[in-house]
């Protein structure tokens, strides 16, 4: 199988999510190319309401694939400022373009130091090749 993409400009979690920093205190969260490959065929993504608040590592959504279900966890505590509505009509965007059109939520982070513990691209590559 083709090697999973791990872009250099992102941070990662051990739960196979990526974090894209946007501006000073906002992040975009989705699942990694490796994670979408493991899940295969995403058929439904349950996302939170805009305006809802989550603590760090709280489950904020669910991804249903044909043969598996996976929870999504917030990499840092904060408020949901946007969700990817396009996934409602086309959840397979997560498989086709996990780092682009397949993004999931945009969060305003309460305490940006919570992002310090995230994995670098090299560390994430090590995690998925272990």
């Amino acid at each position: 199988m083709a090697e999973s993409k791990v872009p250099d400009n992102l941070l990662y979690t051990e739960e196979h999510e990526y974090v894209m920093k946007v501006g000073d205190d906002e992040i975009v969260v989705g699942i990694t190319d490796w994670a979408q490959g493991e899940l295969s065929d995403v058929v439904f993504v349950e996302l939170p309401e805009v305006g809802s608040s989550f603590a760090r590592m709280e489950a904020f959504g669910t991804i249903e694939a044909v043969k598996a279900v996976s929870e999504l966890y917030t990499p840092a505590g904060g408020d949901v400022v946007a969700v990817n509505e396009a996934l409602g009509d086309d959840p397979a965007l997560v498989n086709r373009d996990p780092y682009g059109d397949g993004w999931m939520v945009r969060l305003r982070v309460n305490d940006t130091t919570e992002l310090d513990g995230l994995l670098s691209p090299d560390n994430y590559k090590a995690l998925i090749s272990a």
Binding site: A2, S40, V66, K67
Partner: peptide, 12 residues
């Protein structure tokens, strides 16, 4: 094999 690169839906 649980699936091939085409994926479960395409195989189905």
């Amino acid at each position: 094999p649980v699936q091939y690169p085409a994926g479960v839906s395409a195989e189905h």
